[in-house]
Design a protein around this nucleic acid. Sequence first.
DNA 1: CTTACAATAGCTAAAACAGGCTATTGTAAT
DNA 2: ATTACAATAGCCTGTTTTAGCTATTGTAAG
Lengths: 211, 211
Amino acid sequence: MIKIAIFDDHQHRREALKLLIGLEKEMQCVGDYENCENVVEHLSTNVPDVVLMDIDMPKVNGINGVKLIKKNFPHTCIIMQTVFEDDEKIFNSILAGADGYMLKKTPPEKLIEGIYDVMNGGAPMTATVAKRVLELFQKQNFQPEEKFDLSERELEILRLLVKGLSHKMIAPELKISVYTVNNHIKNIYQKLHVHSVSEAVSTALQKRIVK
Amino acid sequence: MIKIAIFDDHQHRREALKLLIGLEKEMQCVGDYENCENVVEHLSTNVPDVVLMDIDMPKVNGINGVKLIKKNFPHTCIIMQTVFEDDEKIFNSILAGADGYMLKKTPPEKLIEGIYDVMNGGAPMTATVAKRVLELFQKQNFQPEEKFDLSERELEILRLLVKGLSHKMIAPELKISVYTVNNHIKNIYQKLHVHSVSEAVSTALQKRIVK
DNA sequence: CTTACAATAGCTAAAACAGGCTATTGTAAT
DNA sequence: ATTACAATAGCCTGTTTTAGCTATTGTAAG
């Protein structure tokens, strides 16, 4: 029996969801609430397996609700529900620990399917939401194919600079004189179009030249 | 009419997919290939709207296939197909520009649904794959709640350091003396447990103290 | 009204760095 | 064999940065 709790500020929708869940033999609704005030107390008497969480609720919104639930009941799965696909909300929901994200216009049978999905360790997502996630992901990991043409030695030194080593510390590390280190660093500056270690480190990290 | 091309090294599966697509009135198969050699030539005569792409194929694999297709036919949507959910492959597929990711065991009607989804700008994903994506995303954006307790002024200066400004350049920027700048920087060093601008920049970026 | 503490501001000496030089080595093209 | 070029290696000097001081301001607690 899958125990489900509902959070939504519209009573009408709560009733509809309860009805829908009631139709499933394997599911039961163990609570419905109009916002996330006192979430933890509400849920602790009968911890649900799945929470259907509206994002836009007064007082404590759904995203904070997710944080609270995940902190106190880490095994409870949470499916976010919202009217629009909004990058900001999707992003924050995922970071808060949401396990699924479905638009409210999703047909009832899909929602039920989604509940079974989370119970099986999946993350049901409306395709348009998933698209946003992929785009965010791509954007975050995009690396401009900029060719800085650093030599192997220069890369090695750049990595040490990023680790926080000074000229003086790098020299013994690579068993060369600080003069040579200095020279490599100068060449790095030219290639990265910078004029200091800190700029080089900043560029190296931001352009993902080193991790 | 949705034009679909199939890439899969198993003839049996290609035939099955062709049959499936043939059953849909709105879809037609415009080509099926056992690997991604000469993808561009193959597709250029009759550019498909959707590509069903097996990941594991000999010679040119699916991920490189995606890159080639996206480069040459950016409007063609690609749904990846694979037997296992494997983080590495999911990650690389997304970066290559895949628009969907469905396990091969997905029932036929779901696959057809997925094709309609991509055509509508969505990203159909098997729930277990979506779960992996969410987890990757969370991991990447996780920020250790480390409290460095930098003052507003210190944060301001740290941001300028990350932008590559030196002590000397920061002073006029904030209309204070370089002595003061130096002092703030010293305090930043203490709080971040570092001893140079470059280390501070490195820490600031890696611990996401500034973006 | 003190007291305590953090943020802000300033000075100086010693250490580290940036940038202008030259030299050697290896490799590829003429 | 010669030339060209890039990577590597080294040296020197003027400037910047680091870190050890002190001082002022604002604010919260006793």
